[in-house]
Design a binder for these strands. Structure first.
Length: 280
DNA sequence: GGACAGGTGCGGT
DNA sequence: ACCGCACCTGTC
């Protein structure tokens, strides 16, 4: 396999680890060389640093340019978000290398159903076994399974790959998607899309928001997980019930909500662990 | 070895 | 609408 260099991009607002390890993607790994391998549907790329640039090697540069959201001006976003509060400035400075990935919608739906009440290690394991069981061969390994392949699989297959009680959610949603036109989401606003997603088994509020943020390019949503709940109670506590936290942050951050969520999530998980000074 | 994981569905108020 | 609870299973 001899991958061509497709493009380079300045690393200041494109950090490989920040982008891959902030919880939005599960199919990536570190290669022996230290480079990162990234899989998306049936496509593959390798990333590493060369001086002040990220180098992206792939057969499909156009796909991965959009995948890594490289047409967007993150310097402007960071500036805007930093102006909100001292805490947001600190979180944005820490996470400014994060880019919101534009991922495949089908892959997001099934991946985040698997992610519910689960840990990242195991999520990656299940998805890898899912691709091996049902994905098409590519020059770089198995592709993410198609809706047809998912719908033709038995619920026992999903049990076998370790999905646990999510096995029936995968089975039911795959079969429901056979009769659903995914392009219908393009005509919906985020509220409508959310309502539609919630109708599928295994998709609750958090998973729906992740699917919209990473699979439908909806920047105006704010997924709330256990880490974000900690963030809310630590820095934003205003007496909201858990179910109202997402709306609270959406009202606060508007069209930047999704990116703010990534900054706060990554800040709480990676930065705050070191117990350094946090601005309140 | 028990608690915990980037929650959700379900049944009971 | 709004709780409270059970839930697969790999990992620490």
């Amino acid at each position: 396999m001899n991958l061509p260099i497709a493009f380079k991009y300045p690393k200041e607002y494109f950090n490989i680890q920040d982008t891959l390890e902030c919880g939005q993607i599960f199919r990536y790994k570190v290669l022996p060389s230290g480079a990162y391998a990234v899989f998306s549907q049936d496509k593959y790329a390798e990333l590493y640093y060369d001086g002040d640039d990220v180098v992206v090697k792939t057969d499909d540069g156009k796909y991965f340019w959009h995948f890594f959201d490289l047409d967007e001006d993150y310097a402007a976003k960071v500036k805007r978000i930093s102006a909100i509060s001292p805490l947001m400035k600190q979180a944005a400075e820490f996470g400014k290398g994060v880019r919101i990935l534009n991922q495949d919608l089908t892959e997001m739906i099934f991946s985040f159903i698997i992610s519910a009440n689960n840990n990242i290690k195991r999520i990656q394991l299940i998805i890898e076994r899912l691709c091996n069981a049902l994905g098409e061969d590519t020059p770089y390994g198995k592709a993410f399974p198609s809706i047809n392949a998912m719908a033709n699989a038995s619920v026992e297959l999903f049990t076998l790959i370790g999905a646990g009680y999510r096995d029936r959610y995968l089975y039911e949603t795959a079969n429901a998607l056979l009769y659903f036109d995914l392009s219908a989401f393009d005509l919906m606003d985020s509220g409508q899309a959310r309502k539609q997603l919630l109708a599928f088994k295994g998709i609750g509020p958090k998973v729906a928001d992740c699917i919209m943020l990473f699979g439908l390019k909806r920047g105006d949503v704010f997924p709330v997980d256990t880490w974000i709940k900690k963030v809310y109670h630590n820095y934003f506590e205003q007496g909201h019930k858990d179910a109202d936290i997402s709306r609270f942050f959406c009202d606060l951050f508007g069209s930047d909500a999704g990116l703010c969520q990534q900054y706060l999530f990554y800040f709480e998980r990676k930065y705050r662990q070191s117990e350094v000074n946090i601005v309140k």
